[in-house]
Design a protein around this nucleic acid. Structure first.
Ligand code: MN
Ligand code: MN
Ligand code: ZN
Ligand code: ZN
Lengths: 152, 152
DNA sequence: CGGCCAAATGAAAACGATTTTCAATTTCGA
DNA sequence: TCGAAATTGAAAATCGTTTTCATTTGGCCG
């Protein structure tokens, strides 16, 4: 790793080492805050901006990429060998993955047909996961139009 | 429109009327600022929050939906009869659309196979549009590792 | 082994889009 | 017409992201 970074012109530091290791230990879809918390458990002197910068660096060197679900928080997803898509449960907000190998071909065709040279594909499927369907909870009826309209 | 909203418990106002009309007159992928500017051309007394709230309302009643490309700005996309995906040019940032009818079937199958009940699909293809490829401009070599790493 | 200098760090501040607050105004059904 | 509920505009609050800046550190070179 140290060597890998060095060849790209970056130095290794204790903080960086810890941040990189922590990131890869954590699951997928990690937010800055989550990683920051994890890192601070090991070394509470590491700064937030250092975590943020290193997360950006991890993306820059191609080891992860940002994921935006429109919930206001950027998450970082460890790069996978084969491209994958995301199921986003609108109830519990859980993010799960699926392989998109068999679809990439079609996306490439669509791109070609539209005179567009693709470099990356993102597929997000919103819906409800099994767990949430089984809970089948709170119908939660509309009562106050304004509250519904103006509040999240 | 007035009637449509009334049945959902919302009132019509001059501002709302103007905002809705302006939104549908504009192209796709409109940001709050863009719509705000357009609206102010007609009536400079309309407030920013009113524009924002009505954009949210348009989504709530199903006439549009938010689009997030991770560039920090939420855009609002008029709902289309048939679902469509987006080509996002990494150079000029232009967003163009493509029909995804022929892929939706597969996405539905993938969802079923993963025990997920889908309610919406989003496909984003990053790459370069024709215009940008033809410009084929500025190779822009890396010179300062830190600058490259820490600045956008 | 020093010395040097770009890279890296941490704290704090800046940013900027989004969202909320609140008092005043308006809509629309009873 | 009246009044409750919705809407509005201005301003402030939020809050994740990004930058600034003074200081420290890593790693290459002699
Ligand atoms: Mn993922
Ligand atoms: Mn669109
Ligand atoms: Zn769920
Ligand atoms: Zn382009």
């Amino acid at each position: 790793m140290r060597e890998f970074l060095r060849t790209k012109g970056f130095k290794m530091t204790p903080q960086r080492e810890l941040i990189f290791r922590s990131f890869f230990e954590m699951g997928k879809h990690v937010s800055v805050d989550e990683l920051y918390d994890k890192v601070r458990q090991q070394d509470s002197s590491v700064g937030y901006s250092t975590v943020w910068r290193n997360l950006k660096l991890i993306c820059k060197v191609g080891l992860a990429e940002e994921v935006n679900l429109g919930d206001g928080v950027t998450r970082y997803d460890r790069a996978t060998e084969t491209p994958h898509g995301h199921f986003y449960c609108v109830d519990c907000k859980k993010l799960t993955e699926f392989d998109m190998d068999n679809i990439v071909g079609q996306l490439a065709i669509i791109s070609r047909d539209n005179d567009f040279v693709p470099s990356g594909f993102k597929i997000e499927i919103q819906g409800r996961c099994r767990a949430c369907r089984e809970k089948e909870a709170t119908p939660k009826k509309t009562t106050d139009a304004q509250a519904e309209a103006q509040k999240p």
